[in-house]
Nucleic acid binder design. Structure first.
Lengths: 246, 246
DNA sequence: GTGCCCTGTTGATCTGTGTCAAAGCAGGCC
DNA sequence: GGCCTGCTTTGACACAGATCAACAGGGCAC
């Protein structure tokens, strides 16, 4: 289950430092965190936790992708969050989970038992502060997603998703506008549909449509070639201000 | 603009204590907050702030209702938050606003300049903690709303909205199931449409439909009579677990 | 190779909701 | 009263996306 200690990634190599929980911790504080942390890995498709489960662990994503989903009894579900490396799961002060959490790729979590973690929060005030910042970023992202779900067309939804993936995947300073970008999608059509409030058929048709219109190219069904990001901006209705999306 | 000091409400009489920012403050801490607070009032329909405005004030809603909206350039807008008494606006550490904030009824805010407020946050750790809890509640609410926007039908959306209003308006322990409840809506058809990702015509038709099917009664267009809340639960696809909705 | 499973694509059709347009209704003001 | 103006309702129609169904392709076991 857990990595061996020798190969285990450490908090100090969180892949995207500025978003990470411990972004502002000094060495002593990192040491405090290291003392109580442990790792868990999951296979693609594996359920991490279900709605209503006791929440006695909080965690940071070290590598891989996971999803948060909310469902109705009749089987309809809506993805409400996409967890990428450095994102945080769980919440101090809450004892049960509100969502289904699933690994969509091989996933490694850096976990902390809730009780000692809460104790550390009191001891290290700027950890609490950082957690608040991250929660507010997530809130902004959720609200942007509400705009997408409530008001955008299927094509705009797809375009927005591609923009989001591009932003989180590619070097922000590289890839000048007008250069063809190669974008590898980490999720299936079904996951996308779930994310966008669409059906898989509609997602598939939109990809075909965008390809026929020359806005994107497809290489297999997990790789998208984007000749001009600007075109996608038009399709997506995104004003490109770079606000947090997830 | 501001209330006279004599009639000004104080933080200690926040109408819904358990959700309020200062819910766990002692007298000394309340005094610290009181020293830097001031009040602002707005008329129904008045714009409080626009997206991109500098955010040098944070505030708690004392009375009335406000909305948060996110829009695309072509005029489409989606409401992303409903602010009721005791809800909090603004965020420490962020300098510009992400949304349009509008008063939909006569509104009173209890404001704090951002700088001194941030200083207080450091001085009073459990204020920070409370802020985190509130942000996480908002996040849960936003995510429930994503399920509604992405997967529910127009009728279910209306029913969910009525359930939400009922929960926030009515005495939670009163009104046994099976008793007719009288629910006064604080928002117009347009605001509802904006909230639900629908058009005003669809909202209107759904109200008519629910009335014709005997699920609700209408008394004017701002008052809804609900013979049996259980019926609404069925319509809304809400499992009624009482999780935070906004 | 064959058969099976899983994911994705494409087609035909249906339907819920948006769009456009007109009319009803209440409140305010002259 | 009459005439606004703003909000709501209702109708006719169009269309985006859902639904149902068939098929294609790749990976894998055998």
């Amino acid at each position: 289950m857990a990595h061996s200690l020798a190969t285990a990634p450490t908090c100090s190599n969180c892949p995207i430092r500025h978003r990470a929980l411990c972004a502002r911790c000094d060495d002593d504080e990192l040491e405090d965190l290291n003392r109580i942390k442990f790792y868990r890995t999951y296979k693609a498709g594996q359920t991490i936790a279900m709605r209503g489960d006791a929440l006695d662990v909080v965690a940071s994503v070290v590598s891989g992708t996971a999803t948060l989903e909310r469902g109705i009894e009749d089987g309809r579900t809506q993805m409400v969050g996409l967890l990428l490396p450095s994102d945080f799961i769980g919440r101090p002060g809450r004892t049960t989970l509100q969502y289904d959490v699933t690994a969509v790729s091989e996933l490694t979590l850096c976990c902390f038992a809730r009780k000692p973690f809460e104790a550390l929060l009191i001891q290290i005030p700027h950890l609490q502060e950082r957690l608040l910042e991250m929660a507010l970023d997530e809130l902004d992202a959720a609200r942007d997603w509400m705009l997408l779900l409530g008001r955008k067309t299927a094509r705009e939804k797809i375009a927005s998703l591609l923009m989001l993936m591009a932003k989180r995947t590619m070097n922000p300073d590289g890839e000048a506008m007008g250069t063809t970008s190669r974008l590898e999608l980490p999720i299936s059509r079904e996951t996308m549909a779930n994310f966008l409030g669409l059906t898989i058929e509609t997602v598939s048709r939109q990809f075909t449509g965008l390809r026929k219109d020359g806005v994107i190219g497809l290489d297999g069904n997990r790789v998208v070639l984007i000749p001009d990001l600007q075109d996608l901006l038009v399709e997506s209705g995104d004003d490109g201000d770079g606000g947090p999306l997830i």
